[in-house]
Design a protein around this nucleic acid. Sequence first.
DNA 1: GGCGTGACTTGAA
DNA 2: ATTCAAGCCACGC
Length: 120
Amino acid sequence: MKPENINFFEKVYEVARQIPVGRVTSYGAIAKYLGTARSARMVGWAMNGVNSGNSKNNTQDVPAHRVVNRKGLLTGKHHFDGTNLMQQLLENEGIEVVDNQIVEFEKHFWDPFKELGADI
DNA sequence: GGCGTGACTTGAA
DNA sequence: ATTCAAGCCACGC
């Protein structure tokens, strides 16, 4: 096993967990924060493990619904239990979602570098 | 052990 | 301005 890889996943969960309510971020932002900007796919894959009911991290601790692609489109909503679950969760937090897309995504965008600080 | 897919992003034509 | 292509790493068959 490679501890570094595990750190990557753990870091993704940690960052996603720190996302405040009513805010959203993109896979690329997290990936970039971790130093693997080109590996944004892995971030999404990590989320897949979250939904799958991983050992210590689960959807309750890691709000994957607050993580969307760079366009603010709910690309991963299909992976959720229901089809509208992701959108429902976002709307529940006060985020407007239309046609699987977050309204004013830039306004709700949560930048880990700016909020957490580029202290990696 | 090899090939393809995947919740993405960025860059170049 | 838009469209196409490549890159990244992990997991499944």
